[in-house]
Amino acid sequence: MSDTKKMALIASRGTLDWAYPPFILASTAVAMDMEVQIFFTFYGLTLLKKKLDAKVAPHSNPSMPMKMPFGPKTFKNIEWPIPNLISSNLPGFNDVATTLMKKTFKSKGVATVEQLRDICVESGVKLVGCQMTMDVFGFTKDEFIDGVELGGAATFLEFAAEADIQLFV
């Protein structure tokens, strides 16, 4: 089919919040009969690991609302003013924030990153790992899920040049 639309994504971040956009867009694009390639580079590479371990770090994200996923609505709507001194120094703070964010996503009927990634793999989204950043960070291909191909800037650009949508997320 020559009129198949194509989408090229670069996934460059590895936190839980930023793990969502590439997998949401890719799975939806395939559901809209598009052909998709995601190029994973820098911290985005961690999204290819067999066991996904994406976290959020509130101290590095001042616009992230700090809310509780449980309790009555008035309680849930409270934004907790947590000072950076605490959020960046308290051991385990990121883990707590990550757990709370996952709970919030679940309670809002949002798929997990793992589910979305599985859908991408099953529906034929082409996943490309950036060889250069793999070397820099010391990742090997066997740490990644099956079906990942490796390449560099030229691999991405060759596909992106023919794509209708190109996004850096």
């Binding site: 939806t28 559901a31 809002k108 009927g109 949002v110 798929a111 859908i119």
Partner: peptide, 13 residues
Amino acid sequence: RGLNCPLPILKTK
């Protein structure tokens, strides 16, 4: 019901 973006689309597909 109760599902959020993009699940309704993915399930419909």
